[in-house]
Design a protein around this nucleic acid. Structure first.
Lengths: 196, 196
DNA sequence: GCCTCAAGTGTTAGTCACTAACATCTTTCG
DNA sequence: CGAAAGATGTTAGTGACTAACACTTGAGGC
């Protein structure tokens, strides 16, 4: 909880983002990032398990899982997931979009980082299954979650490359429409969330 | 083209699969794999760009892309992709399933390898877009392809873990039904392919 | 059979991500 | 203030991967 650790972590992330943009992900060593942030490489690895993780940090899983669980349980799994994502689009439009976008833009050019993004979605998919799958439907929910998240990831990569032509929310909505076309005509109420 | 290179490559794959099963992916070094196959580590890297790739080698992309392109072009992208996959299930049931399954079973327990599988699907998705997307619909096709392939990957990982309770074809069919539920009632003709 | 060229492979010496063990410093709190 | 707990530093590794260059083995022309 200490503030000091959080500050170090933030300095490392900022330094990494900066160096990656300037010289490319591969050309930057962990040593350099650590030095720029004024710490040793060991401190870097205490905050981030791998070089990738300094860029791909995503704390959204619990909200997503809740939003999916809140959908009507008589719908097919794929539709529950897609509607859950759609219900989050209003929230997404309030995000600190810029640094997120810089990170994704870097990842868009580096295969290993795209693989890392995909690995993130595996974690998210697990969270969705745990929170929203009916007993016996885990397999279907797992596939549905993987499908929707992959579509969103694909959309994100295009978004970062093309520049911010649309908001994050619109992007996610577009991805869900690509997976479940008839959702284009549906009205999905915004997710309110539960009091923390 | 030379037979010698192919033999070395095959020996490396066999040695790797064997060692991975016995002692775990992480505990096996490239040096060991190379030594077991009777070559140096440099030869290993000439045949496989990374340690992962000795396990995750998949030459199916062109067939998949063709099968999707063969679907009626007035359908939504997601449905063209799903039907394309379904049309391949008869072919899949004739595959040398066993070594494939061993590889996936190993990958199922190693996060980095799952990320590698996801990276493979990115390549496949590109092939699908190139072969089957109508001009202007690239984005939608990219998301649809990512979604379907992710569902299949999720299914494969479960398959390898649970043991071969069903055939590869049934597995893919189940994944496509999870993504596009109404396809359960559709008849999709088998893909014939084009003469090589 | 011999020569040649090219493909396949080996050797060596490096870089860098990542880990383990232990020492040191800083903050917190009694 | 003093001590425990948390954050960071130092050092010495391992192992994936690369670059440069030398060597071997095989197929085709003479």
């Amino acid at each position: 909880m200490s503030t000091r650790a959080e500050a170090t972590r933030a300095r490392l992330q900022a330094a990494a983002l900066d160096l990656f943009e300037r010289r490319g992900y591969r050309a930057v060593t962990v040593e350099e990032i650590a030095a720029t942030a004024g710490v040793s490489h060991m401190t870097f690895f205490r905050h981030f398990a791998t070089k990738e993780r300094v860029l791909l940090d995503d704390p959204f899983d619990p909200v997503i899982a809740e939003a999916v669980a809140a959908q009507p349980s008589d719908l097919p799994a794929i539709e529950r997931v897609a509607r859950g994502m759609l219900s989050l689009t209003p929230l997404l439009d309030q995000e600190p979009t810029e640094s997120t976008r810089r990170g994704i833009a870097i990842a868009a050019g580096v295969p290993e980082l795209q693989a890392g993004m995909a690995a993130n979605t595996a974690t998210t998919a697990r969270a969705i299954v745990d929170a929203a799958a009916a007993p016996g439907d885990e397999a279907e929910m797992r596939m549905a979650a993987a499908a929707c998240l992959a579509a969103i990831t694909a959309a994100l990569l295009g978004w970062a490359a093309d520049g911010p032509r649309s908001t994050l929310g619109d992007l996610v909505a577009g991805a869900m429409t690509a997976v479940v076309p008839h959702l284009a005509d549906a009205h999905v109420p915004a997710f309110a969330g539960s009091p923390a």
